[in-house]
Design a protein around this nucleic acid. Sequence first.
DNA 1: TGTTAGCACTCTATCTTTATGAGTGCTAAA
DNA 2: TTTAGCACTCATAAAGATAGAGTGCTAACA
Lengths: 350, 350
Amino acid sequence: MNRFGVIMDDRKRMVLSAIVNDYIATAEPVGSRTIVRKYKLGVSPATVRNEMADLEELGYVQQPHTSAGRIPSDRGYRYYVDYLMQQRELTGEEAALICKEYESKVKDIGQVIQRTGQLLSQLTQCAAMVLKPQSGMSAFKHIQLVPIFQSNAIVIVVMDTGTVHNRMIDLPESVTPADLETVSSVLNAKLQGLTMEKIKLVLIKEIYNELVGHRHFVDLAMELIQDSFSLKSEDKVYLGGVFNILNQPEFHNVEKVKTLLSLLEQEEQLCSLLAVKENTGAVTVRIGGEINHKDIQECSMVTASYQVGDRVVGSIGVLGPTRMEYAKVIGIIDFMRKSLSQALERVFQG
Amino acid sequence: MNRFGVIMDDRKRMVLSAIVNDYIATAEPVGSRTIVRKYKLGVSPATVRNEMADLEELGYVQQPHTSAGRIPSDRGYRYYVDYLMQQRELTGEEAALICKEYESKVKDIGQVIQRTGQLLSQLTQCAAMVLKPQSGMSAFKHIQLVPIFQSNAIVIVVMDTGTVHNRMIDLPESVTPADLETVSSVLNAKLQGLTMEKIKLVLIKEIYNELVGHRHFVDLAMELIQDSFSLKSEDKVYLGGVFNILNQPEFHNVEKVKTLLSLLEQEEQLCSLLAVKENTGAVTVRIGGEINHKDIQECSMVTASYQVGDRVVGSIGVLGPTRMEYAKVIGIIDFMRKSLSQALERVFQG
DNA sequence: TGTTAGCACTCTATCTTTATGAGTGCTAAA
DNA sequence: TTTAGCACTCATAAAGATAGAGTGCTAACA
């Protein structure tokens, strides 16, 4: 109840629901006549007008100008998503497409991520992003120092989530391939199966002692291992289907497209958009200003995390106009989140 | 000389040059008055009009409509690029920016590629693409089979250009980590330093004989090695700075933007755009229809290949409107091509 | 007290009309 | 060969006219 004494009731909820549904479908402000005609409330347009005035009072809808219909406000969408929207099962076609994608054997994590993103954007008609498995949660599996030329080598680090990192290092003149082999095997023996914290706190000294004389590039290797855990300077997220949202009338303004594109080209920004705070399995919906980013005030994001076993390792999400089909998108994200988790599970526990 | 007996002469060349320069700068059709005023030809507008009519006859310029100035045709740009344009040295600022980028030590090939692309798009104000070092030209360096769980492992292949490929494979129940070690070292010993052709033709049988009993996953490993050479299913090209070209008035039409974006999101398409036919070091300019792709009739591409030693391993390029600043862009591409080649050289020969 | 018909009013979007002016091609004179 | 002069074209912008969707308010009604 607000200061005018207006409170939400069932009919207002029906009207709000009608407004949101119709606006999502048509992208046009919704008038009282339309609501009565299409949604059969059994009352007159005048009554609906009164309700709409109340809904505006409550902050759920707004008028672009005096003689236009109403469009939902961010708050209206929020109410809709939380209370009004009815869940929508995937169509057989959608489900089939997803299942088919994940039934084939996983050859390469990167490829699974990419295909997931493509499918997601195709099904939701939004821009899709997929955060690759993050090493923060995974454990060290294997390290290998591969000599390339006299003076440099590649350090390869494999995590137990199947991700592989590599980087180039310089070698002191004196180092032989055999030395590299030694270092590789000591590191492997000592670090196997550990997470970053343990590596950091417990074992560094021990390794140092064992590898006296190779400290220089043990340092470099450790630096890489550390980077691997924090995923520095890597391709962390898949982004695709951006052109989909250009179909939406709200993006017929090139300035907006430009702002959006330059945002999406910055990987750190994508990461922060995808970073899921709560690790519950649930699907998260952020609407307009809730995203808390000035360049995408008129967009919503639907995100969810995926797991390997019981570890949350990454997340998937879509970005679309606030006027997106929430019911459909939420259903798809949830389904894909589960499918992706299962597929990865099968790889690692299978 | 064409069927009307009109031939190119110096004054026509000056007029054409003025039209192209002015149109590049303003994006507006260029009229006879403007040319006389800005480019001081020392003749009257009427004279210039006659010349322009001739240039139209020759197919170098065209009129958007009867009472507008002229704009260059693809053929006009071509003539400009081939004969009229004067080379433009990089500004100190540009050169400094590029040099600074490449003076720091290379840690990771992927990162160099990415920074190269970012710099390229920033300097040219076009969309930039960089084809990563292709393995077709490189030689096998190292393979490593890393067990992840009981039933699967990661095959890692390192090429002598410093690129690393990996993929997951299933293992038969019976295989032990020690077996993997054996296979790794046999493959390493046999394949070291060879290019694909040699591996294919000469050695497969030999390896089979040596690894009787492990044929199944030797097959898988060989498949990956093969894929590594052809770079299948991998992130082959960096793309960035697409938002830059939205500043150009020719892209104020959202339909065009959409067409372009959906093209650029397809990696195979990017590859075919970047694939350089002639491996000469020269910078290649393709204008409008010369690109031979219906979705980018109104764009030009400037590309060049880069090398490691004397092997061409990849290429860089930009995509912009046909109305791009060719002189500047060509200068930048050429400079960056050399800088990138040198930087990679330093890594591999240093 | 809640609902509805009626009506005047507002505002946008669209269409038409009307300048305006940049730029041309042609002709005839220099 | 060059140029001044002039009639002509066409896109763009501004101004006005019209239509229509939708509103809020008032008064009557159940």
